[in-house]
């Protein structure tokens, strides 16, 4: 039996990533899989006012920062929430803000720096340890990140390929169906189904296979999310299915042993689709909470699973 630890959608939260690495010895897992989205979405410039004072806008509120100690606290809050920070003078801030290309370049550089820091940290922590760690981006993540993972020393890439986990073939895909945010790895349903089918057709034994797709299958309880209106405001009372119809078709046709998904943070849960156990561990990265699931895998069956929150 092997113990598989699966986490998804930490969105740039350094505290969640550090917790993930620490969880491997604490939970005593054999294999750990960190599925995307890996990167965050918010940039917070700390604009210098002189005399050890700064200002910034954080979570919709203007903040005045009066000391280096306070600044350090704010940086920690920003990083833990999965945001990125940068020091700027007023002139630098105005210059960056004046051109979306400047913002994009600055943001990307901060995102890639953090991913590299994470990979370096994993190399440092996993050195000489028995754990196997797999990492894969999600639909939010730029393609450059694949190369960074490919070049890592001890973190194994798994996107768009079959990897062997004990007796189980695990197929992984970072792609998703269209979202309202027009993210880098989206495909229309038809293309997504073709892409997924091309991957799962390489599996030799579907009975013991693990489908590790970022996007959950359509129509199950793992893809329920609040409906958005035209202004992308969430409805409190109406939920819709946002999963992939292609993923659903393939799971129902092939009936693999296990399906691991992310993408929809709110829909933490487990559900059966025929003989296939489907799991979405959900995400609360912005609160600094690492949500995950530990799965006990026998040769031919899922012996048990437990959701974790740390």
């Amino acid at each position: 039996m092997i113990k598989l630890f699966f986490v998804t959608d930490i969105h740039g939260s350094s505290v969640c990533y550090r917790k993930f690495l620490n969880a491997l010895p604490i939970y005593g897992v054999d294999v750990a899989v960190l599925l995307g989205d890996l990167t965050g979405k918010v940039l917070v410039p700390f604009v210098a006012k002189g005399n050890d004072a700064w200002e910034c806008t954080l979570m919709g509120q203007h903040r005045d920062i009066g000391s280096k100690e306070e600044l350090a606290e704010y940086k920690k809050v920003v990083e833990n929430a999965g945001y990125y920070w940068v020091h700027q003078t007023r002139e630098e801030f105005e210059e960056t803000r004046s051109d979306p290309a400047n913002i994009d370049a600055l943001f990307k550089s901060l995102v890639f720096t953090r991913v590299q820091e994470w990979l370096d940290l994993a190399d440092e922590r996993l050195e000489g340890k028995p754990y196997q760690m797999y990492m894969c981006p999600g639909n939010d993540d730029w393609f450059v990140i694949d190369d960074m993972i490919d070049n890592a020393k001890l973190v194994h890439p798994c996107d768009k390929r079959i990897v062997q986990i004990d007796n189980h073939e695990m197929v992984t895909s970072s792609a998703s169906n269209p979202t309202p945010w027009d993210t880098p790895r989206e495909m229309n349903e038809e293309d997504l189904e073709k892409h997924l089918r091309g991957l799962v057709d390489q599996i030799k034994n579907q009975e013991t296979a693990i489908y590790n797709f970022h996007v959950p299958p359509y129509g199950y309880s793992l893809d329920l999310c609040p409906k958005l209106d035209e202004t992308l405001t969430m409805s409190a009372e109406e939920k819709i299915h946002a999963g992939s119809i292609g993923a659903k078709k393939l799971i129902e046709e092939n009936q693999p042993l296990l399906g691991l998904f992310g993408h929809i943070h709110e829909s933490r849960g487990a559900q059966k689709a025929g003989r296939t156990l489907l799991i979405n561990p959900g995400s609360e990265y912005s609160e600094g909470i690492l949500k995950g699931v530990i799965i006990m895998l026998d040769k031919k069956k899922v012996k048990d699973y437990v959701f974790t929150s740390g």
Partner: peptide
């Protein structure tokens, strides 16, 4: 595992 707080450092 479901209740414990994981250390971030």
């Amino acid at each position: 595992m479901t209740y414990g707080e994981l250390p971030p450092e």
